[in-house]
Structure formats: structure tokens, C-alpha cells
């Protein structure tokens, strides 16, 4: 079966620094996949390559079998990808409901637009803040609002860059529940995350990136049990052999 998202020998360097190095990655439709790795592993660069914000030096990106390597970001979004950034990307001086309206107006208008805004506000625990200026929300609420904007596009693939950064444990857990609810509706999720409790809560598979390469890949339990993964987080290993924990 064709993966929903696939990269083939994807490579990106800044000067002499190979930030993404021959990455062959595949994500199945409907899967929740977490991308972990120490700081500087190349996770965010990999995301920006997937989104089209960076152009790779080599390699291909395929979405539902189509080569999207040369497409602009907005064109990728229109094909069914959506993203939530690490730093909340919202429209700060507009109201919360207006933020959602701008995201939803692609496919809705009139009464159905209003109904969908109310439904999303409830889903995001933001009903009480509908007319609040988005810039005045708490950090966690801003993260939820951005998730709401991202899912307004009815994506088949949702990219989440550290969706729980700066959240309290309760907010993190609630975010995990949101992601799982979306996944039950058929949305595939690729999340960069550091919080292992969150990874454990949502991930079906985990990929470890290290110095721009795939270091390990497998189920959450297998990755957590892998001592070599713990070692790279502690800075004890720098050799990045490509291998699969599931295959080992």
C-alpha cells in the first residue's frame, strides 16, 4: 500500500552542515508517528522540508504517491497536509473565533461556518474565549487554537512540532486526547515531541533522528527500551547506524 507520506534519500545542508542526511521515511495513512531526537538532530528542518519551507539539495518527498518536492507550501497544504508550529502561529490581534473562521472559510460559509466554529471551540476547550483577542490567551490555549486552525483544513496528515511545549501536565494530557480523537477520525499525525509521557500516550510508531539521519525506528516501547537511544540523548553515542529496532 502506498504510504501517505514518503521521503526518499532526502538531504539538506547548510554550508558544510548536513542537517538532513539521506532520510528515507514512510508514514502510513491513519498512523500516529512521533519523531524524537536530541536538540540539533534535524527534526525541525525535516518538518520544514516536508512543508516546502526549505528546498532539499537531494531526494524526493511524496504525498499519497505524488511527488510534491517542488511544490510551494500552500500547494502542499491544499493537498491535505496541515501543520502546527512549535511557537504558536496564530493571528494575535484577531478574536479566537475569527482565527478559526479564516482557517475554515476554505470550505464553509454562512450558518454552517458558524456552527463549525462553535463545534471546534468546544472541542478545543475555548468556547468561553471565543471573542477574546487571540494574543491574550494563555500559552496552552494558543497551542490549542493553532491545533484548531490546523484541523479546520480537514487534513489527512497533521504535522505537529512540539505541540505540548510549555504546557502543564493536565494540558499535555488533554492535547494527547485531542490528537487521539482526531486520529480516530482518520487523520494521520506526525509529531515532533520531547515529552516522553506524551509520546507514550499517543504514538503508534516512533522514529529517532540523530545528526540528520534516522537512528532507530520502532514501536514506542521498543524505542524507550533501547539503551542506545538513551545514550544519544545523554550525548554518549554519535555513530548513527541506520537500523530498525523492530527488525533487530
Amino acid at each position: 500500500m502506498t504510504p501517505l507520506l514518503e521521503t526518499r534519500a532526502l538531504s539538506k545542508h547548510f554550508g558544510g552542515l548536513h542537517v538532513t542526511n539521506d532520510v528515507n521515511f514512510a508514514l502510513a495513512a491513519g498512523e500516529i508517528h512521533c519523531l524524537i531526537g536530541p536538540n540539533g538532530a534535524g527534526k525541525s528542518t525535516f518538518f520544514r522540508l516536508l512543508l516546502g519551507e526549505y528546498t532539499p539539495e537531494r531526494g524526493q518527498i511524496l504525498y499519497a504517491g505524488e511527488d510534491i518536492t517542488a511544490l510551494k507550501p500552500f500547494a502542499r497544504i491544499r493537498r491535505g497536509m496541515s501543520v502546527k508550529f512549535q511557537v504558536p502561529g496564530i493571528f494575535p490581534s484577531l478574536s479566537v473565533a475569527h482565527n478559526l473562521e479564516i482557517a475554515l472559510q476554505h470550505h464553509l460559509e454562512g450558518a454552517s461556518l458558524g456552527a463549525e466554529i462553535r463545534r471546534l471551540l468546544a472541542f478545543l476547550n475555548l468556547s468561553a474565549a471565543a471573542s477574546e483577542r487571540a494574543g491574550n490567551l494563555s500559552h496552552g490555549q494558543k497551542q490549542w487554537l493553532e491545533i484548531g486552525m490546523a484541523i479546520s483544513l480537514k487534513p489527512r496528515l497533521l504535522l505537529l512540532d512540539e505541540p505540548t511545549a510549555g504546557m502543564s501536565p493536565d494540558e499535555t494530557f488533554a492535547t494527547g486526547a485531542m490528537v487521539q480523537a482526531l486520529n480516530r477520525d482518520g487523520v494521520a499525525v506526525l509529531a515532533i515531541e520531547h515529552d516522553m509521557a506524551f509520546v507514550r500516550q499517543i504514538a503508534q510508531r516512533v522514529t529517532v533522528l540523530h545528526v540528520g539521519r534516522i537512528f532507530a525506528q520502532g514501536t514506542t516501547d521498543a524505542i524507550i527500551a533501547d539503551e542506545r537511544v538513551a545514550a544519544i540523548y545523554l550525548g554518549e553515542t554519535d555513530a548513527p547506524p541506520l537500523r530498525s529496532v523492530a527488525d533487530a
Binding site: 512543508l51 507550501p73 500552500f74 497544504i77 501543520v83 508550529f85 502561529g89
Partner: peptide, 8 residues
Amino acid sequence: ERAEMLGY
């Protein structure tokens, strides 16, 4: 950036 990432 957000506007572009909403497909505009």
C-alpha cells in the same frame, strides 16, 4: 507564515 500554512 500561518496564512500560507492555511493554504493561501
